[in-house]
Amino acid sequence: MGAVTVSGLKVTYRRAGSGDPLVLLHGGFGFDSRSWGPQLDALDDEFDVVAWDAPGCGGSDDPPESFSMEQYADSLAEFTKALNLTRPHILGLSFGGALALALYARRRTLPRSLILAGAYAGWAGSLPADEVQRRVKLISEDVTQPPDDWLPKYLPGMLTESAPREMAERTLALMSGIHPRASLTMLRAMANADLRGILPDIDVPTLVLHGERDARSPLAVGKELHTKIPASKLVVLPGVGHLSNIEAADAFNSEVRTFLRSLSSPIRP
């Protein structure tokens, strides 16, 4: 584990390999850089893979309760600068996908490419208002309780019922590291984010990678992102749920590798 200070906060991360930089942005619900284990282990032969713990996740400090999606994005930009990552590829899953879009909106020349996995244009930008309200109410009530009392009921939204039991148990263990107060901060940021306006302006190569059976970010959300982002590529992983990087790691890694290899021209400063 490494650590840097950005926006006045300690931010921890995992790093492996060498090559073009690839920054991995995890989802919410207690996930952190550990959820990218299958990618850190498989893509490090070709890329400098960096998985951060977002503020309020893993070993990172909790941010102020008022932290917005824009502030998460600014912290991410500072993080890439602190690690001297020049025009990194940005791969975000779920909340991390929305964060990747927010980063692009704030620092358009920073990402070399975007990979949006099980992503949203923010909840306000991808879900009906009543569904956003339902999620906010439910999670706000649950997160005040002991994690063991409520986290298991969210697991079916992350993986399909065909996922091996051991995989489900490992995923639940990852989720149990949740920072309750910081998760409410992340929840508010995600619920209020509406990044639809930036989608038509994205002019870096973009891969929309979505699980066919994603119950958290339905496939229709991924298709909408693909429709609105010019020249984006949509890949649907059959039979896979929200955490496609875990449930179908080999297929996920293959699609990421194929996409990034197609961008083989040298990085421009």
Score class of each variant (00 low, 15 high):
residue 163 A to E: 02
residue 228 K to N: 12
residue 246 I to A: 07
residue 236 V to M: 03
residue 16 A to P: 05
residue 111 P to E: 12
residue 72 Y to V: 08
residue 72 Y to M: 05
residue 32 D to G: 08
residue 7 S to D: 08
residue 45 D to C: 10
residue 255 E to S: 03
residue 158 M to R: 05
residue 264 S to T: 10
residue 144 T to A: 13
residue 210 H to E: 14
residue 54 A to Q: 15
residue 261 R to I: 06
residue 262 S to H: 10
residue 200 P to Y: 10
residue 162 S to K: 09
residue 47 F to S: 07
residue 93 L to R: 08
residue 146 P to V: 09
residue 231 A to E: 11
residue 254 S to H: 11
residue 56 G to S: 09
residue 101 L to R: 09
residue 59 G to Y: 00
residue 247 E to T: 12
residue 188 R to D: 11
residue 48 D to Q: 00
residue 256 V to H: 01
residue 54 A to Y: 02
residue 33 S to F: 06
residue 38 P to N: 11
residue 140 S to T: 13
residue 38 P to Y: 02
residue 61 D to V: 13
residue 115 I to K: 00
residue 30 G to R: 08
residue 185 T to N: 00
residue 201 D to N: 06
residue 232 S to W: 01
residue 36 W to S: 02
residue 214 D to C: 03
residue 81 K to D: 07
residue 153 K to D: 05
residue 256 V to I: 14
residue 262 S to E: 13
residue 72 Y to L: 06
residue 93 L to M: 13
residue 2 G to P: 02
residue 45 D to L: 13
residue 186 M to V: 15
residue 168 A to Q: 11
residue 17 G to K: 03
residue 184 L to A: 04
residue 104 Y to F: 13
residue 266 P to I: 07
residue 4 V to A: 10
residue 17 G to S: 01
residue 190 M to I: 09
residue 222 G to P: 00
residue 174 L to P: 02
residue 193 A to S: 14
residue 117 A to D: 07
residue 162 S to Q: 12
residue 268 R to V: 13
residue 143 V to H: 07
residue 174 L to N: 04
residue 47 F to L: 15
residue 186 M to G: 15
residue 23 V to K: 00
residue 39 Q to E: 04
residue 159 L to D: 03
residue 151 L to C: 09
residue 90 I to N: 01
residue 165 R to K: 15
residue 74 D to E: 11
residue 95 F to L: 14
residue 216 R to H: 08
residue 213 R to A: 11
residue 201 D to A: 14
residue 170 R to H: 10
residue 210 H to S: 14
residue 226 H to R: 13
residue 129 A to N: 06
residue 246 I to P: 02
residue 47 F to G: 07
residue 243 L to W: 01
residue 187 L to T: 08
residue 225 L to Y: 03
residue 227 T to S: 14
residue 124 A to G: 13
residue 73 A to R: 05
residue 12 T to R: 00
residue 42 A to S: 13
residue 165 R to Y: 10
residue 21 P to E: 06
residue 62 D to V: 00
residue 10 K to T: 15
residue 42 A to G: 04
residue 182 A to G: 05
residue 210 H to Q: 14
residue 260 L to N: 04
residue 179 H to L: 03
residue 253 N to S: 11
residue 41 D to V: 09
residue 60 S to I: 15
residue 245 N to V: 12
residue 265 S to R: 12
residue 53 D to H: 05
residue 187 L to E: 08
residue 76 L to Q: 07
residue 262 S to Q: 05
residue 238 P to N: 04
residue 100 A to P: 01
residue 84 N to V: 14
residue 84 N to C: 13
residue 184 L to S: 00
residue 83 L to N: 01
residue 159 L to N: 07
